[in-house]
Nucleic acid binder design. Structure first.
Length: 913
RNA sequence: GCGGAUAUGGUGUAAUUGGUAGCCACGUCAGACUUAGGAUCUGAUGCCGAGAGGCGUGGGGGUUCGAGUCCCUUUAUCCGCACCA
């Protein structure tokens, strides 16, 4: 009986569905384990062979945990709202609701073919009203809360109002956009509009007039993580800075907790580092500089208060709030022109011209509080309005940007730290002795910094301050395909929709295209009485892992019972591209819900594994220029050729199928070839997998040709999970061959299933238990590629062994990787009823590994070494004699039977007991 | 510029974590069987050399009895941040 993977896979996929094999529920008698994949955007292109890698890895782990008798939650859903889905709809001229539905159906059929263990009863779609009700609900909660720094958590906005009524801002320490001070009387005197304006300064979801990333190509604003190098991540359209009134989430309120929480997570160091950089914490001093002949004080932020004796000028950002006040009449025209110029420069230009020095003197002077010298105040766009206070104290001797600026404008440069040569360049290092610096002269920089913090505070010049690079997330999009805001307006005051009225459903419209002006599509809907922007893509994906726990609950996002049991995600598998987007927002969202007492864990994703990207491997043919003749790669240098991508599906092991090539496209119909060794060998290169490079491999095709089990095992056999690597269909035969061999082990010579009940030999048991140990260790370490190797070694060693005692545990062991074949063999060849996944993971028994090596202490040449055993220039026999005569070794070996002493000449000693 | 990662045969990779580098596959070569096939099985396969032997983990240095692994330095590639004070 041949290994008919098609029949087996269809049979078991149907049976799993019929029996509800992967359905899970809260079961307090068993420990839970939650394995989550980052749910996909159902794009129009469908899955290519790279997409399922992470799903396969998490599926292996889920099945393994289940075999270890955990109650495993392993759900799947669709991130269906947002730009990608909408862009696809616009491109194809169909309604996003229709394309989304179609794309989901296609994804589902592709996923089903691979044989995943998802509990599809728990599927969520972010575009379902029943789902986005809870996205809107969370938004309302954020609207109704502020972040209290004293309590270090989110608190109801009513508490803040009560405090304002009682004592104004006195004693209030809350996260806000701009610091405010007012009394209870002043609060009482405010009208409703003014009060709401004040509250928006504190709400965790708030509306503000701020500089935003405006993308005309997409017709919407974007969050910082959706912009890269001045271009939109989706579509690559230019992005400009524009002042607009937008909804934002006060993510910055959680900056410190987001940073600290990282230490508790089992994430890769590189991913944690990306998040740390994104949050960008820096400790420094917030200080006030007096402005000469003015009541104004200039507030700055610096991480190097030690260099204050070297401050020779100040710089403010073009958008600085006090700039016009600082500007003298003589300089007014020049400054105004500079501001105008800055506005015109796009984000891209600013990035491109990073090192170009520009700026204008404001006409005012500040006073250096430590030297009492008058120093000029400049405006320049190298100072950013959005970071710190939008103003800096410039220390040209020790900051390369200040240095360039000082050189350009001929300003004084005073060195205050020893080291470097400031006639050539600034000395930026944070080490060396202070010079020219009054009371800190002679101190090291590391000592001087804390001394200056103290001195600044003692003199009342300012205080120590922690700053973050992280910005509040822009939360509105001028697009159609997203969650509507549960907000309506009266006299431009925002009011929340009552919770009982949720969800506010997205209206069906015929025209959903964005507009150039930024007027959202919903503004065209007659009778639409709510906010016309919609929420961004990350809104729906921020709490989906909670919804899987209790997907149909219409009373709560997740019930207390379900959340108490499933808690948070034990293993999260997905791409690293979400490091600064989804993975920050989700953590923020979860921490907020945690503060409210809605969820029981502070962090959503305990362990996270980033699968590497699977790239394409393109093939090329070489056309001799001006002809229809193609030359094999080894001979191409003898001709003047042109490289042409050729479909990888008509190439096998880099050998071109000539007939298939002639039939591929009309222009190749009469192609002629210059062969080498009778073959046409193609060139190859690693590139992104994309249609235009003809290197896309569809998983459906692989499943058709080799079966899902082969696809699953081959994907992970390609290399380490976390590493990026190219897909190469060559080589898949090795894995397929392995599965066929495994299948044949259960058969007799006539080809019928027959397993022997004969007892296994010690050698067979040794192989089996070595494999159990290796494979379970490898799964725990996500080293799936080496686990597959271990299976292959196992079969090589077992030869034709067909004993039940060996095959039965092997079948369970392999079931996580190749579930279909395991199920079939489990029931048909081994005669079990029910699923192999109701069995238990085979237990490793070290007794079967007869030979064990141990380290032991030994003295050689008078030196006692405990770590490893060393023999210097001795023959094996001499070492053996010496080792056995060694009192330390003797003591260590006491009572242990010595089987063998292994000596690698002159090098190693191992004792086998 | 700052931060992170990677570098091993023709190819993908492995290495008990400092102990005989190249496991397992692909490919290639040779052989067996054969209904001639993209089936199955067996063997060989890092490089140089006829051989003994020598050389070999991007380059250079170091620690060590011993380094793919640790340290310093350098190069290349990829990723993240980027005028962040």
């Amino acid at each position: 009986m041949e290994y008919n993977f098609k029949e087996i896979e269809n049979k078991w996929q149907a049976l799993w569905q019929e029996r509800g094999t992967y359905k899970v529920d809260v079961d307090n008698s068993r420990p839970k384990f939650y394995v989550l994949d980052m749910f996909p955007y159902p794009s129009g292109a469908g899955l290519h062979v790279g997409h399922p890698l992470g799903y396969i890895a998490s599926d292996i782990y889920s099945r393994y945990k289940r075999l270890c008798s955990y109650n495993v939650l392993h759900p799947m859903g669709y991130d269906a709202f947002g730009l990608p889905a909408e862009q696809y709809a616009i491109q194809t001229g169909q309604h996003p609701a229709v394309t989304t539905e179609n794309n989901i159906a296609r994804y589902r059929s592709q996923l089903d073919k691979i044989g995943f263990s998802y509990d599809w009863d728990r599927e969520v779609r972010t575009c379902d009203p029943g789902y986005y009700k809870w996205t809107q609900w969370a938004f309302l909660k954020m609207f109704g809360h502020y972040y209290d720094r004293t309590e270090d958590k989110a608190m109801p906005i009513e508490n803040l109002i009560a405090r304002f009524e009682k004592s104004g801002t006195e004693g209030v320490d809350a996260a806000c956009t701009t610091e405010m001070t007012f009394t209870a009387e002043e609060w009482a005197a405010m009208d409703e509009a003014r009060r709401e304006e004040v509250l928006q300064n504190y709400r965790l979801a708030f509306r503000a007039d701020t500089m935003v990333n405006w993308c005309a190509g997409l017709g919407t604003v974007l969050a910082n993580d959706e912009v890269k190098d001045g271009l939109s991540v989706r579509g690559g359209f230019p992005v400009e800075q524009k002042r607009m009134k937008q909804w934002l989430l006060r993510v910055t309120a959680y900056a410190e907790r987001l940073l600290k929480g990282l230490d508790t997570l089992e994430w890769s160091d590189s991913l944690k580092e990306i998040q740390r950089n994104w949050i960008g914490q820096s400790t420094g001093a917030q200080m006030f500089f007096d402005v000469a002949d003015s009541p104004l004080k200039l507030e700055i932020f610096t991480t190097r208060p030690d260099t204050i004796f070297g401050v020779t000028f100040m710089v403010v950002a073009p958008e600085h709030k006090d700039l016009m006040t600082l500007t003298s009449d003589e300089q007014r025209a020049a400054v105004e022109e500079y501001i105008e110029q800055t506005k015109k420069r796009s984000e891209r230009e600013r990035i491109a011209e990073t090192r170009r020095v520009s700026g204008v003197f404001t006409g005012s002077y500040a006073v250096n509080p430590f030297t009492d010298k008058k120093i000029p105040i400049y405006v320049s766009d190298y100072v950013l309005a959005g970071y710190g206070t939008g103003a800096i104290m410039a220390v040209p001797a020790h900051d390369s940007r200040d240095y360039a600026f000082a050189k350009h404008f001929g300003l004084e440069i005073i060195p205050v730290v020893e080291g470097g040569d400031i006639s050539v360049e600034s000395y930026d290092a944070k080490s060396g002795n202070m010079i020219n610096s009054g009371f800190i002269t002679g101190k090291d920089v590391k000592e001087a910094i804390p001394m200056m913090f103290d001195e600044v505070e003692r003199r009342g010049l300012g205080h120590k301050q922690v700053n973050y690079r992280l910005r509040d997330a822009i939360f509105s999009r001028q697009r159609y395909w997203g969650e509507p805001f549960p907000i309506y307006y009266k006299n431009d005051i925002a009011y929340p929709v009552d919770e009982s009225k949720l969800p506010v459903e997205l209206p069906a419209v015929a025209n959903f295209t964005p507009t150039e002006s930024g007027e959202p599509p919903l503004a065209r809907v007659e009778g639409w009485e709510y906010e016309t922007s919609t929420m961004p893509g990350f809104a729906g994906s921020s709490a989906y892992y909670l919804r899987y726990m209790d997907p149909t609950n219409d009373q709560a996002l997740v019930s207390r019972e379900a959340n108490d049991y499933w808690r948070n995600v034990d293993l999260y598998v997905g791409g690293i591209e979400h490091a600064t987007g989804h993975l920050i927002y989700s953590r923020f969202w979860n921490k907020f819900l945690f503060d409210l007492g809605c969820v029981c864990e502070d962090e959503p994703f305990k362990k996270l594994v980033n699968q590497g990207m699977i790239q394409g491997r393109s093939n090329f043919v070489y056309r001799i220029k001006g002809t229809n003749k193609y030359v094999s790669v080894g001979l191409k240098d003898q001709y003047d050729t042109q490289e042409i991508h050729v479909d990888v599906n008509i190439v096998k092991n880099d050998v071109l199928d000539l007939d298939a090539f002639r039939g591929w496209m009309p222009e190749f119909k009469d192609a002629e070839f210059v062969l080498e060794d009778g073959k046409y060998i193609c060139g190859w290169a690693i590139e992104k997998m994309s249609k235009s490079m003809y290197n896309v491999v569809n998983p459906d095709y692989i499943v058709e040709q080799y079966g899902a089990d082969t696809l699953r095992m081959y994907e992970i056999f390609l290399g380490p999970l976390e590493q990026s690597k190219p897909w190469d269909t060559n080589g898949i035969d090795g894995v397929h061959k392995f599965l066929r061999r495994f299948w044949r082990m259960f058969q007799d010579k006539e080809g019928g299933f027959a397993v022997s009940n004969e007892a296994a030999t010690p050698a067979e048991l040794k192989t089996l238990h070595k494999t159990i140990k290796k494979v379970t260790d490898d799964i725990e370490n996500f080293s799936f590629n080496t686990a597959v190797s271990a299976f292959m070694i196992c079969l090589n060693e077992l030869g034709g062994c067909n004993k039940r005692e060996v095959l039965e545990p092997l079948t369970v062991l392999i079931a996580s990787f190749a579930p279909h074949i395991a199920e079939e063999l489990w029931s048909e060849a081994l005669g079990h009823e029910g699923s192999v996944f109701d069995a238990a993971m085979p237990k490793f028994n070290p007794d079967h590994l007869v030979e064990n090596s141990f380290e032991y202490p030994v003295s050689v040449n008078g030196k006692l070494r405990f770590k490893k055993q060393i023999a210097l220039g001795l023959s094996p026999k001499e070492v053996e004699a010496e080792v056995l005569a060694d009192p330390a070794a003797e003591k260590w070996l006491e009572g242990k039977p010595v089987r063998k002493v292994i000596v690698v000449p002159g090098k190693i000693v191992n004792i086998v007991i």
